[in-house]
Write a protein that binds this DNA or RNA. Sequence first.
DNA 1: TATGAATGAGACTTCATTCAT
DNA 2: CATGAATGAAGTCTCATTCAT
Lengths: 191, 191, 191, 191
Amino acid sequence: MVERIVTAGRTVLARDGYARFVTTRVADEAGISPGSLYQYFRNKDELLTVLMERYWAETGDRVTAALADRLTAPPGRLVPDAVEALLRALEHDSQLLRVVTEEVPRRYSEVHLHALRRRIQDLGSAYLAGRTPGERSGSTRSWVLVAALEALSVRWVLEQPGITRDELVRELTVLVAHYVGGADPRESLGY
Amino acid sequence: MVERIVTAGRTVLARDGYARFVTTRVADEAGISPGSLYQYFRNKDELLTVLMERYWAETGDRVTAALADRLTAPPGRLVPDAVEALLRALEHDSQLLRVVTEEVPRRYSEVHLHALRRRIQDLGSAYLAGRTPGERSGSTRSWVLVAALEALSVRWVLEQPGITRDELVRELTVLVAHYVGGADPRESLGY
Amino acid sequence: MVERIVTAGRTVLARDGYARFVTTRVADEAGISPGSLYQYFRNKDELLTVLMERYWAETGDRVTAALADRLTAPPGRLVPDAVEALLRALEHDSQLLRVVTEEVPRRYSEVHLHALRRRIQDLGSAYLAGRTPGERSGSTRSWVLVAALEALSVRWVLEQPGITRDELVRELTVLVAHYVGGADPRESLGY
Amino acid sequence: MVERIVTAGRTVLARDGYARFVTTRVADEAGISPGSLYQYFRNKDELLTVLMERYWAETGDRVTAALADRLTAPPGRLVPDAVEALLRALEHDSQLLRVVTEEVPRRYSEVHLHALRRRIQDLGSAYLAGRTPGERSGSTRSWVLVAALEALSVRWVLEQPGITRDELVRELTVLVAHYVGGADPRESLGY
DNA sequence: TATGAATGAGACTTCATTCAT
DNA sequence: CATGAATGAAGTCTCATTCAT
């Protein structure tokens, strides 16, 4: 039941936007009465909190899952594969992504975004570890990399500028590779 | 008087957030009656529109102004100087930056953001022009660069992760320099 | 509940006039909260629309019903009976009649008035049909007759000039009879 | 100055309707400031009162004046001439007539309408006096006649049903003549 | 006198939340 | 548990009126 309500909430949020994310509408969408909603959630805030929790958990899982599929790929493909995975996860419900990132107050995403970033950062750390002895602080580098990948991926999904998916993947790979090591980017591209 | 109201609006927005950006509160803050507000703005939407217009114009001007101060610096300092300027502009009112980027519906910023990005992009193009014959599409590269600089700067200002300002500037310079040309990053750093 | 609200609205309208026909007052009168009103009507306009619909439907029905009671009367009584019926219908709530005809914007009555006039006109046509071959255009004559009967009846109800009901009925009958045919008015009076 | 304001008020009333007959709009139209308005009228109510006073005085004068032009006409033309005069007076500003009769609360017109009716009634009485020994109460008859003429004229002007002006005049003349005396209507038509 | 900015009461409407059934 | 009608605080906006200049 909680499930049903959260799903309805997600539908409303994605379809109608945060300003019309209204309890009655969610109840309607869930096929229940507004009163019932309050038997599963203390208030609207709690519903939104749970909803966002799910959204980010799912999104994180999608990234992870997509990556798992490629674990056997040659190590040089790590970056492009990660980007691909990230894009795919974000694209899964881009309407919702837009509302979540642009309208829902950030505090509902904060914790989850941190967690997601850490997950991705861990992948990155592993990648970096075996690579450059790096004079620059590792944590700063990861922060920069993860933030850049995240921001660019989200922007690309939401704005669909005149850039193909492959182009984007290639560019981000170059960005990462050059930034990290100055090594030949072609290597990172898995050629 | 328009000034007074816009200022009050800005205060409320920065201090109380978008959800409490309410006409009566703005009027209170401006020390006027709710009715007076409507002698200067057709409705709340217009007030917000003007407010955002000002905010982004100011922010853009700050970037430009900060850069103008450094025009005489050696060309290799362009990137770090631009980043510095951007950071300074964003930092000027980080409370407001947070609300503007995270809570106010995106449509109020859209036009202005595009304009600001173009300004920055133009700087970038000039930089790139004299530098790499670049095999990769220039427009894609600019998009990536500007999006990355913007996103990372905003995030740094809002989250204040454990990274010093200098460190950030240095990292972003490296990011840009390596991405653009693979040239020696030290050059871009102005050493 | 719609019933309760419409009734309250009618009371307010009749008692306080159109200028004070205000949502909170109607809600008060109905013994509900202002919010409840909006669970049954999209907005104030819809409430008024429904209210007027009811008012004119009722008024029309009253005319019809009153006439039906007299169907067995001699044909010569048609006109006085119709006038009687009309008066009785209008008198039923003369306070409301006043507000409806004098204050409520005409557009809320327009459609219903047309319908009511047609009903009355049909009676008239039947009456005229079996009577005079009439050289004058029938439609003009009906327009004149119906408009005159309506206007005079309404005025009499609202102003209560020093004229008795019987007097009025007699005069209107004469007016109609003479206008229509020039025949002996006594006939129409059912003597 | 009072003149100027009243004229502006009339313009606004006719053009925008009673609901938008608003002090600031009237002041605008008069080319003065809202404050000034209150130097000539205690409040909005007084302005409207004066405005209506003027409107009805003028309308009455128009009827009278139009009739005066025809005093030399043969006596049998009295009724059609009176109707013509009435129509002309009402038509002079039918926009305003509509608002005055349909939207402005009746109490602003009441006194003036009574006076106007009396004027017309006086004409009628004179007409009737020299004509029928009338078994029916003269005052009742006048009331009926005047009310009918007024109502039909107003309705015709406002609704412009498919009836020509000449037709209307003819019909009303017939109505009056037959009602009053049963005399040959052609006589009243002035043939 | 004229101004017109300022006022603030009050109208319409929405929506998170409750509670009797 | 479920319901859904009822609530009422709160938000946006209008407009008759005032008052310092």
